[in-house]
Design a protein around this nucleic acid. Sequence first.
DNA 1: CTGAAAGCGCTAACAG
DNA 2: CTGTTAGCGCTTTCAG
Lengths: 342, 342
Amino acid sequence: MTDAPDRPPLRVTISDVAAAAGVSRATATRALKGEGRFAEQTRARILDISERLGYVPNTMAAELAAGRTGTVGLLLRDASNPAYGLLFSCLQDEANRCGLDLVTVTIGADSGGTKQVTALQRLLGMRVAGLIVATGGVTNAQLEPFADQVPIIRAGRDATGDRVHSVAYDEQSHGALLAAHVHSLGHRRVAVLATDPAASFPEHVRVTAMREHLESAGVEVTPIAVGAGPAEGVDAALALASAGRVTAVMCPSDYRQLAVLRAARDAGMRVPADFSVTGCDGILPGADLLGLTTVRVPVEAVARETVAAMQHLLDTDSDSDDLVRRSYAGPLVAGTTAAVLL
Amino acid sequence: MTDAPDRPPLRVTISDVAAAAGVSRATATRALKGEGRFAEQTRARILDISERLGYVPNTMAAELAAGRTGTVGLLLRDASNPAYGLLFSCLQDEANRCGLDLVTVTIGADSGGTKQVTALQRLLGMRVAGLIVATGGVTNAQLEPFADQVPIIRAGRDATGDRVHSVAYDEQSHGALLAAHVHSLGHRRVAVLATDPAASFPEHVRVTAMREHLESAGVEVTPIAVGAGPAEGVDAALALASAGRVTAVMCPSDYRQLAVLRAARDAGMRVPADFSVTGCDGILPGADLLGLTTVRVPVEAVARETVAAMQHLLDTDSDSDDLVRRSYAGPLVAGTTAAVLL
DNA sequence: CTGAAAGCGCTAACAG
DNA sequence: CTGTTAGCGCTTTCAG
């Protein structure tokens, strides 16, 4: 034996605590969680001992034995994007305001679909009580099979089918809001960065709404097809603008708006003097200083409602038939990157 | 083949799979994880059945039985701050590049110290194989007691003592780098937003380094004591600048730099014409467009080394005596908010 | 190659 | 009020 005899065992179990206190494991359990009946004095002693021993209850064993889990899982997208980072943060805040324990598993943005499934499995394997999905990387079809084992809520984007709940951003309104603004500024020839639905579905929805709104208002729209790369289509947009073919460039995200702004600066073009630009998100710290014209996505509201809905679903004994399907639109932020057409 | 006769049981266990395949649980286990010896044919059948049944292994039971955990816990700070969001993201990427499973627990920025401990307990309760701590909210003293049960690495800031490892930002260099830049620009009267160590220790370290460097170079430093609020001290700084008492304002974070920039704009003062401003972080998307003068914190390097170190600690059988204690400095980003003094 | 049996650490009825 | 007795779902020797 090379170990010091008086150092507490590497892993203190409830048996150790019970033994040291001269009671049975059951009593220790009850005292530790303050449930059931027990003598206040025994309890104090047990609490004291457990603390002295550095006892940390083994969650796995506890939940396995109890047959239920006190945590809800959060499947998250890459948090380097401030919009997701904020959503994450708000979700977490809401959750521990409501007394829900959240465990998060993320999948890097670059990973293929397989990784996302792995992450899903990991959460389900933990037998979480509920699941919040805040990533587009996992499809509704992949979620569907588990929807009757555990309540699943998609946060930030719509779900399809009738088993997976959702509390989403109203991206359609966002697109329309932006389009209305640009139109009201007098622009009649507009370029739109049209994201491929496979690259980013939310962006696609925004763009579609923009185009529809614009076109129905008689604006001439020039779509520029783009994929996931944030700088894609920027050159094309700039070319159109410098040729005078369009007076505004609408981007489906603030990241792309930044890219356009950057390119414009490098090309010596002035915004909004030479052409107007819009984006979408409004989360970037410093967006105000840049004067970004955008829509401020209602992260807080979505986070709040997601957690509230989860709590409701968890409380409701059986899966009642109310499918949660809400959506929220954020306000337009009229910045200085889009101006009245002279 | 008979399509699922009924809906599969709410919770498919390995016994269900074994029964359906006409084998014992032990065989099912082995086949599922491809370890041990078994007939390739049995295996195929078991795999097939488990898939058809929608079997998801119960992680808690598995790890409880196996006595070991395959996941490392990540204790995270509020991710609404892009710097932490990016660290989170990079850590996650690194981890699943290295085949480590990460589960994350976060504590809202507003929560008191109690919540942080709860989160710690939750992770320890899961019996994670290792722990990465990326928040200042939990002290070294709180970590210390668990350090010989599980390897603990602090990411982003220094650890003290000799049990907790750390892979940190070299905030001292960051401060010095910035100070040297401001000095080289010719500034000789500088205001510094001096963060209280209790509000943010990293900021405090940066500031201290700035002051030391500046003062030893003969620069007249005017410290402005600030707490956690991002806008604190901004008015005082502006007053000093507009009175001509200082020619530059150094902030210990880009958030504060933004606040100063905002205030300057509102007050009709121009940066850098009227006075120079610096920050620190360099993570903000769009920092380049704003021309922020800052240091780009080496998030990627820290994430990489943290995960590498964790992997090493996990592989090393016993706790060898090598305490990981590394730190990295990022490059200066000379923006347009700080200019040569005319 | 596969089955039987013994737990992992904890909780949840029941008895005492 | 407290101890006893079964397991939770899975892994893992150790026989067969």
